[in-house]
Nucleic acid binder design. Structure first.
Lengths: 209, 209, 209, 209
DNA sequence: CATGAATGAGTCTTCATTCAT
DNA sequence: AATGAATGAAGACTCATTCAT
């Protein structure tokens, strides 16, 4: 393996260990020792590949953002051509076990909890939500224009959809017994049914998407 | 001031200093020294009134939960009699500057970020969201039944409304330039307009609520 | 009650609370708060009657020394006239439940443990052991001279007796299951039997003392 | 030096610094900062090698117990074959400057002073005194049986000898001007002379041991 | 006399970071 | 490239002592 590859591999190894460590102990109790232990590497290794703990955390968040982005882009690529189908594909992506496991949701909220005071976190989170919003907004606009929903503001619908997804994640975090991914998707679907009644139906099987 | 009152007063003073300190520096960087400084009291004071830092944090979260609960109960008490009016009063409460200042939202997210690993936080957050959900659910059900929305599931609407509010708070946190309280309320309103079109209209002034 | 009496009473109350607190938690973990609690008085009281914690501890040790001295002087006053009887009365005093309860022994050792660095403790302990030694030495000398133990050095016997008593206290402290006050007294008696065979016999009932 | 050895070496270094620090300032005033300073190492070092202050103290006591045990076992190995010689070798070991320096005695008493509330100290102290007692008891028994001391109880003599040694240590601690190691040994010798007159004489040079 | 709220110095402990090997 | 021993700064917590009431 070339040196650059080793470096890349080690960084990934440490990032994944970081996600695991946050998920296991929390953001406040995250120690580099624990990260190293989980990566089965030595104590000082993190400062070797990341300069500082903060660097590692930023890289970890960046990695999660990238993973998330790639995931929904991938789903979109395999989705049907209609805006309704594509919109639904994005919602499904958001509640895919890969993305919305309680573990991942937990880690996302850990980062959001600290984001306010770390400009770099904020930037990364904003980039993610902007991209997602822009895509959903475009699809909503398409639906409004081509589907004949003259009185509907596509921006507000898109914003609402984005918000509802994040809020449902919070539900999964705080109240895991009261909600699961299926119920979360139904909640989103109900939202879309009301916004675009001619393109979405509550019964998933019968819907256009 | 009687001694018992002093005790209560000091606790409140420290709790408020804690909210301020979290808002200013973040959850991870919260120090008892900073809390004491903000309360213009001495170093050791927190352990005098709270046993431990963790106790203080729990008391702080409990205080925020109580404040939030009392606030929307108060708004509900002063709201009109129709379910639509009452529902809207709850949304307005959620985006009142007292409740949804960026500072407060920030602190809420700080607690949520850590909640996963602190059972007591989880319990307090769950209690809050359960109470709010139950109230909105009842109002939605009332609207569905008395307003003739046969095909609408009040649970899903209530859940969606709850989620959308939390998600918009995240927007306020992450993307303060892209959203303000007015836009947030409009987003909620759009949601309600779609769910209950005969009781809500986009133009706030013209609406039934 | 006159003021001076109250003062005396409070001091005694606090000293007794101190003995109890040391016995319960140890010297290193002794806090004035615990002392005050045990005396059912308020936090700041100790510094009111004793200036400092150190003062309280010195007063406590002084009190124990006085109690010990008075105890064996009292026993001696009630003892028979023969030196053997008087010597044995002193040993009995040392293993009387009032003096050599595991609690008391524990507290004595706590003070001895710290004595090295507190000149005042050392002074008090030395005074106590000097007084006891002087008395036992005089009795041994009497026995040697009147009992015809020409080859016996009364100083060494007295010193040995003193040491054996302290050492048996340590046994009571460290190894309470292996020794009790009866066995301790027997051990002393065996010592005296060997030193003064014509005045002491192992069988307590049959002995001259 | 191999890394494993360094670890062992550092632990020893810190244990010795602890003995020195206790001897210098006392048990109650022992600080890890002082230990580190004496070991010419940094503040945090103790928690690196010992988990906690308490761990360090236990390790220190364990080390002293081991040192003491090895010392008298060594002396015994080099002693003559007769029980009297061997018994005397043990007493000599107990008052050897290596073992019974005022510094060491001081530290022993510091540990005994706290032992009552620290089960691990008690366990270690009990192990030490049990081992020593068992050995002296066996030698006394040998002497009684082979030396014709029919009326003498070897257990009581052994127990007395053990106690007298500990008590003389207390004398060295409390009253260093009144006693030295020579006088202490003489006191023990007088005890043995009385117990086993045909095997011990007061004049050390002329004695059988 | 007595209280108990408040102080703040002192200590243990944690842990990111460094660096010799 | 990697290790892990060592550092030392920072922070939670304890508690003797003070003092207004």
């Amino acid at each position: 393996m070339a040196r650059a590859d080793i470096k890349q591999h080690r960084r990934l190894q440490l990032i994944e260990a970081t996600v695991g460590a946050i998920a296991a102990h929390g953001f406040a109790d995250l120690t580099l020792a624990e990260v190293a232990r989980r990566a089965t590497l030595s104590q000082g290794i993190v400062n070797f590949y990341f300069t500082s703990k903060e660097e590692l955390l930023i890289a970890t968040l960046a990695h999660m953002v990238e993973e998330y982005d790639e995931f929904w882009h991938g789903r979109l690529a395999r989705a049907g051509a209609s805006p309704a189908e594509r919109l639904w594909a994005m919602v499904e992506a958001d509640f895919d076990p890969v993305i919305a496991s309680r573990k991942k949701v937990t880690v996302w909220y850990a980062f959001w909890g600290e984001a306010r005071w770390r400009p770099e976190y904020l930037r990364l989170c904003a980039r993610l939500s902007d991209g997602y919003f822009e895509q959903t907004r475009a699809l909503c606009q398409d639906l409004v224009e081509t589907g004949g929903y003259a009185g509907t503001d596509p921006d507000l619908v898109a914003r609402g959809l984005n918000a509802i997804i994040d809020g449902l994640w919070l539900d999964i975090l705080v109240n895991p017994k009261g909600i699961d991914r299926t119920l979360a998707k139904q909640t989103c679907r109900a939202f879309l049914v009301h916004a675009f009644p001619r393109h979405f139906a509550l019964d998933v099987a019968a819907s256009a998407a």
